[in-house]
Amino acid sequence: MLPAMTDKTINDCIDAAIHQAGLCQAEDVPAAGAVLTDGAGIVASGRTRRVEMNDPIRFAAMDCISNAGRRNDQAELTLCLSHEPNWLEAGTIVQFGIGRVVVGDREALATSETLGFLKARQVSVEVVKD
């Protein structure tokens, strides 16, 4: 079961994701951050580290999901992202069945192909902040 989240919890997680984005090294563009939460607390966080780690797949959501370790409770987790997900991140969210995605970029909602893809594949998508 995907736990309900209060607006405050969601906003705190988005703030944490944006904080993560700020930790990216200058050459790791676009800077992006991600936080996984179970609704009560932060399970894992991550940021774009492709250049930092010489790892082409290390986008923010991938870093975060990898940092969360091997698990079986993805359907109960919410992934908060500072930006709209790219295709690798969106595919990973769908394959692992992450229950909810919150994106801190309101402009992305109407136009984002990947957010549309997530919704079509039964991921709950919310967008907060401007």
Binding site: R50, V51, N54, P56, W87, L88, G91, T92, V94, F96
Partner: peptide, 29 residues
């Protein structure tokens, strides 16, 4: 393979049909 500017001309061989994460990586790159 490490960081690359381009994946033009690359063929990816995989023993098993790709999951959605790996399919996403194909589109992303």
């Amino acid at each position: 393979a490490g960081l690359r500017e381009s994946y033009d001309g690359i063929t990816l061989y995989t023993t098993l049909s790709p999951c959605m994460m790996c399919s996403g990586s194909v589109l992303q790159f």
